[in-house]
Simulated assay, not measured.
Amino acid sequence: MLFGIGAGMGQGIGLVLSKIGLDAYTAAIPVQILPEFENYLPFSANLIRCIAGFGCFALWLLISNNAGKLKTSVRDRQGMLMLGIAVIFGPFLGVGFSLMAVQYCPAGIASTLMALTPIIIILPSHWFFHDPITLKGVIGAGISVAGVALFF
């Protein structure tokens, strides 16, 4: 639970700081210079976040003496294929589009829409992992989204 709370806090703080950075950068660069460049800013910001995350992850591997496990996992073709697909949908598209959402609308509205994940995940979880769809699960997903909406 603590990791989940930490992840939520990290996501929220990162989203707000990213919006502040995007707004400051957009205000500093005249749009007349490169009008189409504004659409790429969220993905550029995402790349900066990924590079910083990779650096922290590499440092963590070195501190915890687990760098050898990384070499072993890179040789697993099936695992690397799944990881590649996950990277495309998670950090690249998911975070990139979330940064684009906060660039064009208030952070509260964007985060509420992004909090729809518990509802969206119900059917894929049932199809891929054969998790049963229960009334309790559906109500819980609705409550979690409603709770985030109350913040905004």
Rank of each mutant, 00 (worst) to 15 (best):
I51S: 04
G8K: 15
F97W: 07
G137W: 07
L93I: 14
L116V: 12
Y40T: 07
V31C: 00
M1H: 10
F92Q: 04
L81V: 14
P132N: 14
L83D: 01
L99M: 13
I139Y: 09
I13R: 08
A101G: 06
L135A: 15
A146P: 09
P35G: 08
P30G: 02
P30S: 07
L150W: 10
L59R: 01
A115S: 13
A101H: 10
R77I: 13
P124L: 10
S44P: 00
N65E: 15
A28T: 00
L83C: 07
P91V: 04
M82G: 14
A28V: 11
G140D: 04
G14A: 05
D131N: 09
L93T: 15
F97Y: 11
G79R: 08
I63F: 15
M9H: 04
P118I: 14
M100H: 10
S144I: 11
G4W: 11
G10W: 05
A27Y: 04
P42F: 03
I85S: 06
S111W: 05
P91L: 03
L41N: 01
H130G: 09
I143W: 02
F152W: 10
H130N: 12
I5D: 03
G68S: 12
G94E: 03
L93D: 08
I63E: 09
G90I: 05
A115W: 06
N66V: 05
I13E: 02
